[in-house]
């Protein structure tokens, strides 16, 4: 199950709507091993495309160096589909390279840049196998014990 706080959920949806009809992408980082999606990091889609996304390679390195310095990892990797359902495409599955991450898919196909509900779904993608999981949106992440 993906547990995500309302503000981060809204930030992902806002990013997806803003970039529609191009795909939006980014991550939510969290402390290594914690499974806590704490730090929202929107990324530029270097592909600038309605059917493809890719982090710019220099920004990708900068992002990972920052996470390594903070002992973080990508807890969520998100991107949008702008004309199809919020389900990993064959390309998404083939390129998924963070077996520990929750892959969040948002579809803006219904309302585009406008207000209105979006599909927001989360998946594990490991060795080419896709498993959908429940998304629990909470006001705040649970306190650390």
């Amino acid at each position: 199950m993906l547990v995500i706080d309302r503000a981060t959920y809204d930030a992902i949806v806002t990013h997806a709507k803003r970039d529609h009809p191009d795909e939006a992408c980014g991550i939510v980082a969290g402390p290594e091993g914690s499974d806590r999606a704490e730090r929202f990091v929107p990324m530029v889609n270097a592909a600038g495309s309605p059917t493809f996304y890719e982090f710019d390679s220099t920004e990708l390195l900068g992002l990972y160096k920052e996470m390594w310095a903070n002992d973080e990892e990508p807890v969520v990797v998100y991107h949008s589909h702008t004309a199809t359902e919020a389900y990993p495409s064959r390309t998404d599955i083939g390129l998924a390279s963070e077996p520990g991450a929750h892959y969040v898919l948002v579809s803006t196909r219904e309302h585009g840049n406008s207000d209105g509900p979006v599909e927001f779904r989360s998946f594990r993608i490991v060795d080419g196998e896709v498993t959908e999981e429940e998304v629990s949106v909470v006001d705040h992440l649970p306190e650390l014990v």
């Binding site: 992408c25 991550i27 592909a47 493809f52 982090f55 390679s57 990708l60 990972y64 390129l95 390279s97």
Partner: peptide
């Protein structure tokens, strides 16, 4: 040397 898989998809 750093190796990083692209974060990319369709």
């Amino acid at each position: 040397v750093t190796v990083l898989p692209a974060v990319a998809g369709g």
